Amino acid sequence: MPAANAPRAPRRSRAARTAPPLGSLTQAAHRETAACSHCGSERVTQLSMNLTDGTPVQFVSCHVCEERSWLSATGPLTVDGILERTRKH
């Protein structure tokens, strides 16, 4: 058993990971330009997410007309399609 005041062995350092810059939604340079597919407004919230089944989608919600849409690599998804893909079997 080491003595109470014995120096510790140095910890192994982890390989440095480079994280992507987070940016800021309040700064225009960090915002992606998107438009509502219903009314054309650019006042939208856009989020990238993966559904429960692993499908990557872009969720777009309009602040003007309140339209919500989910876009996958194969095109737009319906609400029923989203619910089916997020249902745990």
Results as ranks from 00 to 15, higher is better:
V64A: 13
N5S: 07
C62W: 05
S61F: 09
A15Q: 15
T33R: 08
E42K: 11
C62F: 07
G81A: 14
G75N: 11
S69Y: 00
K88L: 08
E42N: 13
A28Y: 09
S41W: 08
S72T: 02
A19I: 05
L83D: 14
G40C: 10
A6I: 04
S69T: 05
P7I: 07
V64M: 11
T18H: 07
V44S: 05
K88P: 02
S37I: 09
E32S: 07
S61H: 15
R11E: 07
M49E: 11
Q58D: 04
R85L: 09
S61R: 13
P2Y: 02
A6Q: 11
E84R: 14
R11Q: 08
R12L: 13
A73F: 03
W70V: 02
R87V: 01
P2G: 01
G54V: 02
S24G: 09
S41A: 12
D53H: 11
S69M: 01
S24N: 15
E66N: 14
C65A: 06
C62D: 06
N5F: 04
L77M: 15
A15M: 13
A34I: 04
T78E: 11
A16F: 14
N5H: 07
A73P: 01
S61N: 14
A4Q: 03
A29I: 11
E67D: 15
A73C: 01
S72E: 02
A4V: 04
H89M: 06
Q27N: 14
A15H: 13
K88A: 08
L22N: 09
A3I: 01
M1Y: 03
G23T: 09
P20Y: 04
S72V: 01
R8W: 04
A35W: 03
T55Q: 02
T78Q: 07
S48E: 09
C36F: 06
